[in-house]
Design a protein around this nucleic acid. Structure first.
Length: 952
RNA sequence: GCCCUUGUAGCCCAACGGAAGAGGCACCGGACUCAGAAUCCGGUCAGUCCAGGUUCGAAUCCUGGUAAGGGCACCA
C-alpha cells in the first residue's frame, strides 16, 4: 500500500519533526500509556469501592455496548464511540465529573454457533474477540474509565442479571396502585381474605399447590402455555420482536411457526401505558418514539358483545360509532367459541358462496382451518384476497337488533383484540372487500365527503343511518361525539364498555440455547417453579460437551425444542435445601435471551465492582437520578446521553425501559427511565463495485474517469450501501491509524457530517484532516528542529477577534454535538493564524487556547502540543478556554441594504447605532436614494446587526 | 397502503426566517524549486429536488408532488 504523504524518493526531504503518520503513532501510543498509568479518565463515585471526591456537576455518557463479533471493526463502527468520546472529553475539560466507559454484550448466538462449529468453548471465543475489540478501540484513544468495563458473560455480572430476574419474578403488578409490588404483599392480601380467590373459596380452603398456582399467575415473570414463535432452524423460540415482517427469524432468516409451548413470559404488557406515556418525558427523536408507540400500539375503542344463541361474541372495535353498520361478524379461525356455537347443519337457504361447497358447517370449518394453517406468513402477506366460511349461526347486533351472519376468516387475527370483529363494510376497506366476495349488506353510517367515489369511507363525517326507534340516535354527530354517546349507551345497557387495546404482547423470555444466563429457578415435585434464594446466586452455566440445541429442518413445524442444558444431567438434577430440608429439584434448561444483560448495564457501569449490591443507591442517585433543577420538574432521570444505532429502537430500548420501571417500583433505583436522552448516530456507508459478471472487485482499486468507474481498465458498476467483507469495500480503523494516525482518523470521521446523518466513506478525503493537523503542529513546533515556536507577543486585534469568535462557536458546537462544524471553526482559526503570522512564531496566548479546543477531537496531538508549550499535567480536565465578550462585538457593522428584497447597496455604521440611525444611513445611501427617487418608502425594516430592507 | 428522515457546487457538507458558503476533497493558477513532492498564496464551480402558499424577505415555515433511506403493515 502506498504511503499517505510521501513516496520513497521524497522521504529524505521530509523534515524530522513533521507531523507524519509515524510521529502521530509514537505520540498516540505514549499518551495512551500516560492516561492509563495516571488513571486520567477514572470517574469517582460518591460511595463504595470507587469512592472519591465528586463534584455536583456530573455527566454520564454511554454508547450502546457492542457485541464482540469475530469479524473485527470497520470504520463505521467507531463513529458513535468517537462522538461520545469527543462529547465526554469536552465536558470533562469544563470541570464536570464524566462517566464514560464501554463494556461488552457477549452472550448470544454467534459465539455459540462458532463453538458448535469448532468445538471451542464460547467463553474462549468471546474472550478472544473482546481482547481483539479492546485492542482496536484503545488505539483510537477513547477516554474510558477502564475500571468500569463490564462483560455480560462474567459471573460477577450475570449473578446480578439473575438477581434482577428474581426481583421481577417475586413481584406482581397492582393495577390499583399502578406499580409493581413484592409478591409477598399479594400473598398477605390473600391470606387475610382481602382478595377473592378465582373460584370464591377461602384461601385456607385451598391446597398449597392451588395457592401457589394462583400466586404464580400474578407474577411479572410467569410460565405460560401459549402460542410462541418456534424456529426449528435455530432450535429455539424467539420473541415477537425478533420475528421479521415476513415471518422469518431476525437472526438466520429461518421460518418461524406459531406453536403452543410452555415458556417463560415477562409481563411487559402491565407497563404498556407507562411505556407509552413516559415517552413524553424523554429527549428522544420522534422517529424512535413513534416506533415505540407503534409497537405498543395502544388504541382506544370498545368491547361490544353480540349475542349468538346462549353465548355472546365479544369484539374489540376502535369505531363503536359505526355499530349500526355492522352487517356481519368475523372470528379468527382458531377462536375457541367457534366449536361451541357451530350447528350441525346449514340454515335453510344458505348462500352457496358461504359454505365453501361443504355439506355441513363443521366440515367447512375444519377444511378452512386446515387450509389456513398451511398458509405461510408470506402467503398471507402477498395474497390479501379475502377468504372465509360461514359458521352457520347468526348473532344479534345489539343496536339494530337484526340477525347478522358469523364467519371465520384469516384476516382476523387471534392475537389481537378479542380475536373477533364486527364487520362494518361501509367504513372499513377490509370488511368491504370481504362483503363483496360473499355478497353481504353494506350500510354507510358515516356521511362521506362530497364527491367521494371510493368504497369504504374511513374519513371524518357525521353519522347517518344510526338510530333506533326507541330513542338511541347517533345521526348528525361527528365521529368523536358518536363514539362517546354509543359507549355510554353500551355501558348503560350492558352490551359493552370502552376499552384500551394494545398490540404489545408479553415478552417471551426463554431461549433453548447454551450461551446465555441460566434461570435462577428450580422445579419441585409438583412441577412448579421455585425461585432460588439470593444466597444461592449465581447459578453458574455448566460445562457441556455439546453446545448446540437440536436444530431441525427449518420447515419442520412439528419439531420440539431440546435445549443443550437439558442434556447436562449432573447439573439439571440438584439437591437443595429451600427451607424444607434437602430435596431434589430440577433446574430450568432454558437460558435468558440475549437482551437480558443489556437491560440494566448502565446501572452496573455506575457500580461495577460492588459485590454487595447490583448498584449502590447513593451512586445510582448521583449518576442516574432525576435532576429536576437541571431538567425540569418531570425529569425521569437516566443516562445523560445514550448513543447508538436506530436498529435497537424497539427491542433493547423497550425491554430496558421495562426493567428500569420494575426496579423503580420496587424502590431499587431512583430513575423512572434508563436513558434520559437518546441520540441515534447515522451510518458510514460505502461504495462497492461489481464487474460485468456481477462479482465484487476491490473498491480501493477502482478509479473514476468521466463519471464512469474502472478496475484494471474494465468498466465496473457502482453500488452504494453497507461496508462488508463480501462487498470488498471494508476500510478498517487500524488501517487508518497506521496510514494517518488516530487523531487524523478521529478528526475526519467527525468532520464528515452531522452525527445523526449517514454518509459515504471516502478514504481520499482523509488527507485533508491530516494536513490540518500538520498545519496546526507547524504553528507550535519547528518542523526541522523540533523546538517550540511560539512568541510572547500580544496578538493583533483581528487575531483576537478570530480567536474569541472561534472559542464562542466551538463551545456551542461541542455542547450540541456539532463536531463537524467545531472542526471547521478550528481549521478556520488555524488558517487565520497561519496567514497572520506567516513563518513567524504565533503568540502563545492564541496558540494555547487553540490547542485546548482541539483536544476533544484530537486528544493525543493536543496533549503533545500542550506539553511542548511547557505544561506538566494532562489537559484532559481542562481548562477549556472561555470567550471574552469584548472581542465578540464589532465596533462597526456593515449593513447590506435591500430594496424590495434585492441587495442594492451597503452602508457601514457604528455598532452602537440605533435602529433609526441605521435607517437614516440606509436611506441616505446614494444608490438607495436614487431607487426611492424622492418618494417615501412604504416600509423600512431594520434587522439589528443583519440588514436593512426598504420596501417601495 | 401508513408513519418517520433526508434532498444546497464534480464529491462530502455549512448557513438564529435576513448578503447562498464555514470547512474538507477534487480541479486550476502563482510563489518556492534544476525538477517533482511537500508547503504557502490565490482562484474556478451551485442559486438550494419540483410546483404552489405565507412573509418586506424562504435553503429554512406551510401545502401538494418527487427521489433516496428507514420503520410498520389484514392490528379491527
Amino acid at each position: 500500500m502506498e504511503g499517505p504523504t510521501m513516496s520513497d524518493a521524497a522521504a529524505e526531504a521530509v523534515p524530522e519533526h513533521r507531523y507524519t503518520a509515524a510521529l502521530a503513532n509514537t505520540i498516540e501510543q505514549r499518551w495512551q500509556e500516560h492516561w492509563t498509568e495516571r488513571g486520567t479518565f477514572e470517574a469517582p463515585n460518591p460511595v463504595g469501592p470507587l469512592k472519591g471526591d465528586v463534584p455536583d456537576d456530573k455527566l454520564f455518557v454511554q454508547d450502546m455496548f457492542p457485541y464482540p463479533s469475530g469479524a473485527g471493526l470497520h470504520v463505521g463502527h467507531p463513529l458513535g464511540f468517537i462522538g461520545t468520546d469527543v462529547f465526554a472529553r469536552y465536558h470533562r475539560m469544563t470541570g464536570r465529573n464524566v462517566l464514560h466507559t464501554m463494556g461488552f454484550d457477549a452472550f448470544g448466538l454467534p459465539a455459540e454457533q462458532y463453538a458448535v462449529q469448532t468445538g471451542q468453548h464460547p467463553r474462549k471465543t468471546t474472550e478472544e474477540n473482546v481482547a481483539r475489540y479492546l485492542k482496536q478501540i484503545r488505539r483510537l484513544g477513547l477516554g474510558h474509565d477502564e475500571r468500569r468495563r463490564v462483560n455480560t458473560t462474567d459471573l460477577s455480572y450475570y449473578r446480578w442479571t439473575q438477581w434482577i430476574f428474581l426481583q421481577i419474578f417475586n413481584s406482581w403488578y397492582d393495577e390499583t396502585q399502578d406499580k409493581a409490588r413484592p409478591i409477598s404483599e399479594l400473598e398477605a392480601e390473600y391470606a387475610q381474605d382481602k382478595r377473592r380467590t378465582p373460584d370464591g373459596r377461602g384461601w385456607c380452603e385451598l391446597t398449597v399447590v392451588e395457592q401457589r398456582k394462583i400466586i404464580d399467575s400474578h407474577r411479572l415473570v410467569y410460565l405460560s402455555e401459549a402460542p410462541v414463535n418456534w424456529c426449528p432452524g435455530l432450535g429455539t423460540v424467539v420473541a415477537n420482536e425478533e420475528v421479521t415482517a415476513d415471518g422469518k427469524s431476525e437472526r438466520g432468516n429461518f421460518p418461524v411457526f406459531r406453536k403452543n409451548l410452555r415458556q417463560w413470559m415477562m409481563r411487559i404488557t402491565a407497563y404498556a401505558d407507562r411505556l407509552v406515556d413516559d415517552l413524553d418525558l424523554l429527549e428522544w427523536s420522534d422517529q424512535v418514539k413513534s416506533m415505540q408507540r407503534n409497537w405498543i400500539g395502544r388504541s382506544k375503542g370498545a368491547h361490544i358483545r353480540f349475542p349468538a344463541g346462549d353465548d355472546a361474541i365479544e369484539v374489540f372495535t376502535t369505531r363503536p360509532d359505526t355499530v349500526f353498520g355492522a352487517t356481519y361478524m368475523v372470528m379468527a379461525p382458531e377462536h375457541h367459541l367457534v366449536d361451541r356455537i357451530v350447528p350441525d347443519a346449514w340454515p335453510a337457504d344458505t348462500d352457496e358462496r358461504w359454505t365453501g361447497g361443504h355439506a355441513t358447517p363443521k366440515e367447512a370449518i375444519a377444511e378452512y382451518r386446515r387450509a389456513a394453517s398451511q398458509k405461510s406468513e408470506l402467503d398471507r402477506q402477498e395474497n390479501k384476497e379475502k377468504t372465509g366460511v360461514f359458521v352457520g349461526v347468526f348473532a344479534t347486533n345489539p343496536v339494530t337488533e337484526t340477525k347478522i351472519p358469523v364467519f371465520i376468516a384469516d384476516y382476523v387475527l387471534m392475537g389481537y383484540g378479542t380475536g373477533a370483529i364486527m364487520a362494518v363494510p361501509g367504513q372499513d376497506q377490509r370488511d368491504w372487500d370481504f362483503a363483496k366476495v360473499f355478497g353481504l349488506n353494506i350500510v354507510r353510517t358515516v356521511q362521506p365527503t362530497e364527491g367521494f367515489d371510493g368504497e369504504a369511507f374511513t374519513g371524518e363525517g357525521v353519522a347517518i343511518n344510526s338510530s333506533q326507534e326507541n330513542g338511541l340516535s347517533l345521526d348528525g354527530l361527528d365521529v368523536d361525539e358518536a363514539k362517546k354517546t354509543i359507549i355510554t349507551w353500551l355501558e348503560q345497557n350492558g352490551h359493552g364498555e370502552g376499552r384500551l387495546q394494545y398490540k404489545l404482547r408479553d415478552w417471551l423470555f426463554a431461549r433453548q440455547r447454551y450461551w446465555g444466563e441460566p434461570f435462577p429457578v428450580v422445579y419441585d415435585e409438583d412441577g412448579l417453579p421455585r425461585a432460588l434464594p439470593e444466597t444461592m446466586l449465581p447459578v453458574e452455566l455448566p460445562e457441556v460437551d455439546d453446545y448446540s440445541p437440536r436444530t431441525f429442518d427449518p420447515d419442520d413445524a412439528d419439531s420440539e425444542p431440546s435445549p443443550p442444558l437439558s442434556r447436562a444431567s449432573d447439573w439439571i438434577d440438584v439437591e437443595l435445601d429451600l427451607g424444607e430440608g434437602k430435596k431434589t429439584y430440577r433446574r430450568d434448561a432454558n437460558v435468558m435471551p440475549q437482551w437480558a444483560g443489556s437491560c440494566w448495564y448502565q446501572l452496573r457501569y455506575v457500580d461495577p465492582t460492588d459485590e454487595e449490591r447490583f448498584c449502590e443507591p447513593e451512586n445510582e442517585k448521583y449518576w442516574l437520578g432525576p435532576q429536576p433543577q437541571v431538567h425540569g420538574p418531570d425529569d425521569p432521570g437516566g443516562v445523560d446521553l445514550y448513543i447508538g444505532g436506530i436498529e435497537h429502537a424497539v427491542l433493547h430500548l423497550l425491554y430496558s425501559r421495562f426493567w428500569q420501571k420494575v426496579l423503580y417500583d420496587l424502590g431499587h433505583v431512583s430513575a423512572k427511565e434508563p436513558y434520559r436522552r437518546l441520540f441515534n448516530q447515522g451510518y458510514i456507508q460505502a461504495y462497492a463495485y461489481t464487474d460485468a459478471r456481477g462479482v465484487y472487485v476491490p473498491a480501493e482499486e477502482v478509479v473514476e474517469r468521466d463519471g464512469k468507474y474502472f478496475w484494471n481498465d474494465q468498466e465496473v458498476k457502482q453500488e452504494y450501501g453497507k461496508m462488508g467483507k463480501s462487498l470488498k469495500n471494508v476500510v478498517t480503523p487500524d488501517e487508518m491509524c497506521e496510514r494517518y494516525g488516530a487523531d487524523t482518523f478521529r478528526f475526519y470521521e467527525m468532520a464528515m457530517g452531522p452525527m445523526d446523518v449517514s454518509r459515504p466513506w471516502a478514504t481520499k478525503d482523509v488527507v485533508g484532516a491530516q494536513r490540518f493537523l500538520q498545519r496546526i503542529w507547524r504553528n507550535v513546533v519547528d518542523e526541522t528542529t523540533g523546538a517550540l515556536k511560539v512568541s510572547a507577543e500580544e496578538p493583533d486585534e483581528a487575531t483576537l477577534r478570530a480567536l474569541h469568535k472561534a472559542i464562542d462557536g466551538v463551545h456551542a458546537d461541542y455542547a450540541n454535538m456539532r463536531f463537524n462544524t467545531a472542526g471547521a471553526k478550528l481549521i478556520e482559526l488555524n488558517n487565520h493564524v497561519t496567514k497572520a503570522y506567516g513563518g513567524k512564531p504565533a503568540p502563545r496566548s492564541v496558540v494555547e487556547p487553540m490547542v485546548l479546543m482541539l483536544a476533544p477531537l484530537c486528544p493525543h496531538i493536543a496533549e503533545e502540543m500542550w506539553s511542548a508549550l511547557g505544561h506538566d499535567g494532562s489537559l484532559a480536565h481542562g481548562p477549556f478556554p472561555v470567550a471574552d465578550e469584548r472581542y465578540l462585538v464589532e465596533d462597526t457593522v456593515e449593513y447590506p441594504i435591500q430594496v424590495n428584497g434585492k441587495v442594492r447597496a451597503r452602508v457601514t455604521v457604528p455598532a452602537s447605532a440605533t435602529q433609526d440611525e441605521v435607517k437614516a444611513a440606509a436611506l441616505a445611501e446614494e444608490k438607495v436614494a436614487a431607487l426611492i427617487n424622492g418618494g417615501e418608502p412604504r416600509k423600512v425594516i431594520v434587522v439589528p446587526g443583519r440588514l436593512v430592507n426598504v420596501v417601495v
